[in-house]
Nucleic acid binder design. Structure first.
Lengths: 139, 139
DNA sequence: TGACAAATGCAACTAAGTTGCATATAATGA
DNA sequence: TCATTATATGCAACTTAGTTGCATTTGTCA
């Protein structure tokens, strides 16, 4: 078992999930990609490499979200995307080429405190996505 | 024709859309609701009241989005929601009771200028949603 | 009012995601 | 290391959101 597989195994055990080939492979895909992946992408890879069924992939994604390993995103595409749930960040989604870039330091937390004070609403999560034209497509 | 219908008719004409019973009724539904509506809600109402087909409702929604009358939102429910595209605001979505409250003055525009400067990405739209527990559900 | 473009209805389809159930596999404790 | 048991997977069938093609109807405008 190589390093990457070993890391993935630990992450699964940390959240009390059984370590299976499908889950290790799914974690590895997330570890090795920067931009958020859709279910179909995982289905293709896991089916080709390990013969994993699409239903299993959907179940893995739901389980990972529940356990907090990944988070679910929606960019108005009629399907969900998923990415590792480590550092907080947001996305710049280019409407021209479809590229997805990350940004961090959006300083939303002060706004969240405001919301608690003014509205009494306790924010647990937020989603912030920017849609526009990336640097490249403006040329 | 009452006032509300007349207003809706004007809004349709302003964006060069033909005025039809289905479109007037759809606009009226949006005018009379604060929280974002899903397609199924419109389908139920327009079908019961006017016998409008579901396909027509989806087409109306797409047309309204294209013309900028409404905007499309996604709250991770596996379906889209739509609301009038007038003043900019964001949403507080309660994970306990499902209620959706509006908030405004989020001051994102300074962040958008920052993004242009730092990343070269030109922001045209953004979506900002907060998920948590509403005042009522905290009791 | 008649012509023409645009909107609608209907049927069929696609794509994302879910459920039930039988089988296979990972974790555990002797 | 083997048997037990809970958990994960595969397969088939299903649901729900949304789309497409085509024939018919309706709104607009001259």
């Amino acid at each position: 078992m190589n390093n990457s597989q070993h890391d993935c195994k630990n992450e699964l055990q940390n959240v009390s999930l059984q370590v299976t080939p499908a889950r290790i492979a799914a974690m590895q895909l997330f570890e090795s990609h920067d931009s958020p992946l859709d279910a179909q992408y995982l289905i293709n890879h896991l089916h080709n490499e390990l013969g994993i069924d699409r239903v299993t992939v959907f179940r893995i994604l739901n389980t990972f979200v529940e356990k907090g390993l990944i988070r679910k995103l929606e960019f108005g595409e009629g399907k969900a995307r998923y990415e590792l749930n480590n550092k907080e960040h947001h996305h710049l989604i280019c409407k021209s080429c479809g590229s997805i870039e990350d940004i961090s330091d959006c300083n939303i937390s002060s706004l969240e405190k405001d919301i608690k004070k003014k509205k009494g609403f306790l924010v647990q999560q937020h989603s912030l996505e920017f849609f526009g034209i990336c640097k490249n497509c403006q040329k």
